[in-house]
Nucleic acid binder design. Structure first.
Length: 277
DNA sequence: ATATTCCCCTGGAAGC
DNA sequence: TGCTTCCAGGGGAATA
């Protein structure tokens, strides 16, 4: 699924086309995705209102609406959004559609149904969706510093890779970028978070931020079926150093080491025993 | 409180 | 060819 760079890519692609557009209808082909699709509530709330702003918070796409409130869209593992003519037939796995002005629709396609579409209130002073208040620090925000990472890792026995993916601590990092950032920083994914030195925390923050920025610049990573609203795949796939490359030679160690795949918290981790300590 | 395990769902690839 | 098993960008509830 989309992690931060993929969601950011989708937000940037949709912001221009959606800003200022009036929503006139809502339809759905399923009663629930990851959470129930509350169609009556959506049909009461959305028609007649316009989309003000499109932005990303963690892995959520936030569409703020005139007269307050926001529509939150999470793409889960396989969700994608596209804008298409309203008369275009629904494809298999098209789940939800917002009817827009100019006879177009915003359609959510999601094979595995791990996506979500929910209505939410905006916090009056911060402007952030109320239901996302529990989420952690944005990795590209100024508050994400080596000192911050050092502080939040103290006392944590969980492996650093698991902590990087814990959305209540740090948001937006999923299975691909956790492995990639740890490889670039030279840190073993299994290392207990509390064992990281200040220097390692600094290396990790630098590596993570650089990778996320590069991936955004490349339009994200396509593993199986991620696509931008225009249908193009994410080119960062060609920049991956460890994810999905088990059995291949490490690009930093050379032929002496091959990338390993192990399982942590039920998810595959890719790493090099030669240069990650 | 913190840390794993399981489960939601579907389809493609790999294994036999 | 056909059946079975494993695996997948997430996240939340249920267990230890």
């Amino acid at each position: 699924m989309p992690e931060l760079p993929e969601v950011e890519t989708v937000c940037r692609a949709l912001a221009g086309p959606l800003r200022g557009r009036r929503v006139h209808s809502v339809s759905a082909t399923v009663e629930r995705l990851r959470t129930p699709v509350r169609l009556p509530a959506l049909q009461r709330a959305l028609p007649g209102r316009s989309i003000r702003r499109v932005f990303r918070r963690a892995k959520y796409i936030v569409l703020t609406l005139t007269r307050g409130e926001a529509l939150l869209i999470h793409l889960g593992m396989t969700g994608h959004l596209r804008i298409c003519p309203a008369r275009e037939p629904w494809r298999p796995h098209d789940r939800v559609a917002l009817g827009l002005s100019r006879k177009e629709e915003l359609r959510l396609h999601d094979t595995r149904r791990f996506a979500s579409v929910t209505l939410d209130a905006l916090h009056p002073s911060t402007g952030q969706p109320a239901s996302l208040a529990h989420l952690g620090t944005e990795p590209l925000a100024p508050t994400c510093t080596p000192a911050w990472l050092h502080t939040v890792t103290r006392g944590r026995k969980s492996p650093i890779k698991t902590l990087l993916m814990n959305q209540s601590v740090l948001v937006g990092v999923g299975n691909i970028y956790a492995s990639e950032a740890l490889w670039r920083a030279g840190i073993r994914p299994t290392r207990q978070a509390r064992r990281l030195t200040q220097a390692q925390c600094a290396d990790l923050v630098v590596a993570l931020q650089a990778i996320l920025r590069e991936a955004i610049a490349f339009g994200g990573t396509t593993v199986i079926n991620f696509a931008t609203p225009a249908g193009t795949p994410g080119a960062f796939r060609d920049c991956l150093q460890v994810y999905g490359r088990h059995g291949e030679a490490c690009t930093r160690c050379g032929e002496s080491q091959t990338i390993r795949r192990t399982v942590q918290a039920g998810r595959s981790t890719f790493w090099c025993a030669g240069c990650q300590r």
